[in-house]
């Protein structure tokens, strides 16, 4: 087919676009994904029994704020990386900011603690399971976000896969806060981050095959 004929074909009856916007796609994906993560939490884990007391502790909110702000930062990255030619600009700063913030709090917590208590601050009670549980909870969000992204047009597939994975990890971590008994800043700054990076790295590794269009 000649290019001119092909153009005519594309333009004929093309009409107004009716495809849902990126905002709507990701809102839907996040809603389904978060609901899925919640379902996994209720089915395989449980909401911690002393939640009503824990919500009175400032550190609970610092932890929640950390993962929630990472969700927002990676959501911005996901939006921009889904659109050809959009620049990331300040988005990496919005993602790294909370991480450095949490590390700063962790350093203060270390300095403040007795030397013997420091390993407990870092390992807590659940370091062996925390990253894997966050990664498990991220699965529904991961699938929903990658599907939405594929319908858009990412051009840097590895980076897009990484951001999509990070978003799913961060949303999963928000949900995981309802279960997790840990409140040490060093614990959150390392093991939570590791848990969120697992889906992010999976996204980066498989981005090229998952997201090609």
């Amino acid at each position: 087919m000649k290019t001119d004929d092909f153009i005519s074909m594309l333009a004929t009856e093309a009409g107004a676009i009716s495809a849902p916007s990126a905002t709507r796609r990701y809102a839907t994906a996040m809603a389904w994904g978060a609901a899925g993560a919640m379902l996994l939490l209720i089915t395989f884990l449980h909401v911690r029994h002393d939640l009503a007391e824990v919500v009175l502790l400032p550190m609970f909110w610092v932890k929640l704020g950390f993962v929630a702000s990472l969700s927002v930062g990676s959501l911005f990255a996901v939006f921009r990386l889904s659109r050809p030619g959009a620049k990331l600009d300040w988005v990496p700063v919005a993602i790294l900011g909370p991480v450095f913030g949490m590390w700063a709090i962790a350093i203060f917590a270390f300095l403040d603690a007795e030397p013997l208590d420091r390993s407990k601050l870092f390992f807590g009670e659940t370091w062996k399971t925390c990253p894997l549980l966050i990664a498990m909870l991220s699965a529904p969000v991961f699938v929903a976000v990658i599907r939405a992204m594929k319908e858009l047009a990412p051009t840097h597939l590895r980076l897009a896969g990484f951001s999509g994975g990070l978003l799913s990890g961060a949303v999963a971590a928000v949900v995981y806060c309802l279960h997790c008994p840990e409140l040490g800043a060093p614990f959150v700054g390392f093991w939570y981050l590791l848990g969120m990076l697992i889906p992010a790295l999976i996204g980066a590794c498989f981005g090229e095959s998952l997201l090609r269009w």
Binding site: S21, P84, A86, A153, T155
Partner: peptide, 27 residues
């Protein structure tokens, strides 16, 4: 051209068109 057509819903009028088109062609 087919990519531009299939992905035309991702164009944001607030964005330079040349950047959008060029990113698709490069991809």
């Amino acid at each position: 051209l087919l990519a531009v057509h299939n992905q035309r819903h991702t164009y944001d009028p607030g964005q330079p068109l040349s950047a959008w088109v060029q990113a698709i062609a490069r991809y």
